[in-house]
Amino acid sequence: MKPRRIDHLVALFSHLCALTLLLLMVTLVGYLLYRGHHTIDRELFFGWADPWQALTFQRQVFDGLFPALIGTTLLVGLAILIAAPIGLAAGIYLAEYARGTTRTVLNLLFDLLSAIPSIVIGLFGLAVAIVLHRWFPGRFGPCLLLSALCLALLVLPYLIRATQNALESIDPQIRQSGRSMGASKLQNLFYILLPHRLPELTSGLILAIGRCAEDTAVIMLTGVVATAGVPHSILQNYEAIPFYIYTVASQYTDATELNRGFSAALILITLCCGLFLLAFFIQHHLQRRLLFRQEKP
């Protein structure tokens, strides 16, 4: 076969692949929109309860997504609150202090942590909870706090890498300008380096939020349940959107419930993609950096 002909075939193949992927995505989102959009209304969130009473927690919501939304929000907030400081600190250590073998070993372990399947982390959390429960009866079981701790562990490597990458990609000139003006290493870090890379750090954080919000495997072992209402404390069971979708998928009883599942899926996908777009915007547009730098001839 002539080279030209091969080239055309490869071109055709690549276009077909891209088109297939595009079509699959359009089908996925289109189907969710088609099935889910018309049930997104007040009732979807609050069931039959009065929205105002629900929002002020005077009244429990049943047949609505409100408790699941609150559950997911609390869960993600708590997980990020735990993971962010540790991730930031560990990332700084890795980028600014660790050298030699220590650095290699830490890098390896963090890669390993990021590769551990989420269900394994969930099982680890459950096992720890059961053992703790044995030692302190009645105190600790699967709950919101446990899920948040496990999710924090899940997103920790992402946060560490985000920090590390952000710091390591700093121009040496900027790095040295602070030091040459007499700033200590810490001053340099907090007043120059970190603010300089704030967009990357923020987008890393937002991506971690998205990762927490979508995960189902960890929470299904560590305390999420089908019916719990809005939790009073972090030591209680809770509801969450991804688990709600899973429950509906496996055991919906009627068309209304199924439609609510579609709406929940639509909400979750919008939330996750929205967070992604936010992170993307912060990283690429606030910095006015060209996104697509490497163009091939």
Binding site: T216, P242, I245, Y246, A249, F262, A265, L268, I269, C272
Partner: peptide
Amino acid sequence: GSIPTVVYGFT
């Protein structure tokens, strides 16, 4: 990459 896996399964 940010599409939740549970949504893939559900659809």
